[in-house]
């Protein structure tokens, strides 16, 4: 573990801010898509692609790469933007999101775009696929890690718990699950629609090592992943507490923003807010 310098943290925060701006631009250009989830998970995706993952954007199919499996495919704008910034595909291609012929499908499609490991959108099947990848890695004595990004809403699905039980049983310690605990789903707040608490106890009783973090704190995110890698006897799940719509004040914590894009005026206001914030990151670290 190497100590994290302020400079690195500042770089990650600035990158996250730029990715948020691109998410807004992509969504307004597409005219449909999901706003809340992508903005809420931007800090985690940035930490992963720009610090944590062992990967090579120029060789996306490198056999020993860490695998990032996105289970809740509807938040793909954040993954697409992070992939573009990391150099997986040309930046200008971001604006083709959801358009006919685009590699940036409305929900991610394996094989369509470099860096997309599995097809997703239908919820609750990412953790099982991650288990399959983790098992294959063990069989082949591979050292890479599998990061499965999931939503809280997809914990309503039985498939998720079948996977959790299986991964606990098989002690797949090369798998790290990260849950976007933003408390919203389509019909409302998770605790009203289908209560998930205590999520920690549920996973612990399935024999997982459980960590809870502030999903917007870069040091927290990175420290949790480092701890997860150090735990050998169990798989680890990181419950990341996040704010859906993070950094766009009128979107924050409102489930109405789950599945809609900003209109032109809203996008303008959102970008103005994000640019002001971006400026602040610079000055705070100076």
């Amino acid at each position: 573990m190497h100590p994290l310098h302020d400079k690195k943290i500042k770089f990650l925060e600035e990158t996250a801010n730029l990715i948020r701006q691109d998410i807004i631009k992509m969504l307004v250009e597409a005219g449909s898509g999901h706003s809340a989830g992508p903005l809420g998970m931007t800090d985690i995706f940035t930490a992963l692609y720009f610090h944590i993952l062992n990967h090579n954007p120029k060789d996306p199919n490198w056999a020993d790469r860490d695998r990032l499996v996105l289970s809740n495919g509807h938040i793909c704008p954040v993954q697409y933007a992070a992939l573009a910034w990391a150099g997986y595909f040309p930046m200008e291609e971001m604006m083709t999101l959801r358009k006919l012929g685009s590699r940036l499908q409305g929900h991610p499609h394996r094989g369509a775009l470099p860096g997309v490991e599995t097809t997703s959108g239908p919820l609750g099947s990412g953790l099982s696929q991650s288990a399959g990848i983790a098992l294959a890695a063990k069989m082949d004595n591979k050292k890479y890690h599998i990061y499965c990004l999931m939503s809280d809403g997809e914990h309503d699905a039985g498939n998720t718990w079948e996977a959790a039980m299986f991964i606990g049983k098989n002690k797949l310690n090369n798998l790290i699950a990260i849950i976007d605990r933003n408390n919203i789903q389509i019909d409302g707040f998770t605790e009203d629609i289908m209560p998930l608490e205590s999520l920690r106890n549920k996973y612990e009783s399935f024999d997982w090592h459980v960590l809870e973090i502030n999903g917007h704190d870069m040091r927290d995110i990175i420290a949790a992943v480092n701890e997860a890698k150090a735990v050998f006897e169990k798989p680890t799940v990181i419950i990341a507490h996040t704010i859906p719509g993070k950094d766009v004040s009128f979107m924050e914590s409102d489930f109405a923003w789950h599945g809609i894009p900003p209109n032109k005026d809203q996008a303008k206001a959102a970008l103005a807010e994000l640019r002001t914030l971006g400026g602040k990151i610079k000055s705070e670290h100076q």
Binding site: S32, H107, H109
Partner: peptide, 8 residues
């Protein structure tokens, strides 16, 4: 269904 793509 349109822009959501083939999964939907």
């Amino acid at each position: 269904v349109g822009p959501d793509g083939a999964t939907h």
